[in-house]
């Protein structure tokens, strides 16, 4: 077993890592949208429950949230008399979706509230309906304000996916440990190095995608050429 054989083996676990990430990204986004809406439009009782959920997702260490999901969810479905269908992978997806949703709602809510009150007034005074106002005026501006925070939350999510090995999901991190144990810890440094490269590439891709949308935003001065800005940003980031 040498280093070059280890790389494809590590990469074979990448689809699961990506699947967990994307599931948490999509489900978390939907959760965050609902949570932010309920926290802005204060519905009695329900909004308070959502507050508790968000503070749980933001204050409990993510490892702990994964354990709670792994051991708690089977109990929860048992209460309703359903069979336990929670494999480590499913528990990881649910746990990270809950974490990411709560975290992201604290990106969305401030972004929405940061849109100038006057923009609402202007749209209302012209007879925009609530939906039209959100989709055409307030939403696009909130997205512009929230994008950098959203980028950060995605990067934290990618990092936190590495924790799913604690509940037994076989992601790249867990696979790396398997490889090392089997090979009598010969290539520990190399394995961790490859792992670091994989995570860096994932985060870089996520960052580039977010950056693309940031630069495409109409509130960005249009004369600023997107390509030169990306180059500058890359240099300053490096």
């Amino acid at each position: 077993m040498d280093v070059s054989a280890m790389i494809p083996e590590l990469l074979s676990a990448l689809p699961l890592t990506l699947a967990i990430t994307f599931t948490a990204m999509v489900a978390g986004f939907c959760l965050a949208l609902v949570a932010s809406t309920l926290r802005i439009r204060r519905v009695p009782v329900i909004s308070n429950l959502v507050d508790i959920y968000v503070s749980y997702a933001r204050s409990v260490p993510v490892v702990l949230q994964l354990f709670v999901a792994f051991y708690g969810l089977p109990l929860l479905v048992a209460l309703f008399g359903a069979a336990d269908f929670f494999s480590p992978n499913v528990a990881a997806m649910v746990g990270l979706s809950l974490y990411h949703g709560g975290y992201l709602s604290e990106v969305m809510r401030p972004a929405y509230l940061a849109v100038d009150r006057g923009q609402h007034d202007a749209a209302d005074s012209l007879g925009y309906t609530f939906r039209q106002k959100i989709f055409r005026i307030v939403g696009p501006q909130a997205i512009h304000i929230g994008l950098p925070g959203y980028g950060n939350s995605i990067i934290y999510l990618i990092h936190n996916v590495a924790l799913v090995m604690y509940i037994g999901a076989a992601d790249v991190m867990a696979t790396a440990h398997l490889i090392m144990e089997r090979d009598y810890n010969q290539y520990q440094f190399e394995t961790y190095l490859v792992l670091a490269v994989i995570y860096s590439v994932l985060c870089l891709i996520a960052w580039l995608v977010i950056r693309f949308f940031e630069l495409r935003s109409p509130m960005q001065a249009p004369e600023a050429k997107a390509t030169t800005q990306i180059r500058h940003a890359l240099i300053s980031n490096a």
Partner: peptide, 19 residues
């Protein structure tokens, strides 16, 4: 009433995401 009136604001309130 909103459809038949229009307001010009002290703080302009021009939509920032539009030309």
């Amino acid at each position: 009433i909103r459809l038949r009136t229009a307001m010009v604001f002290q703080q302009f309130n021009v939509f920032k995401n539009m030309t």
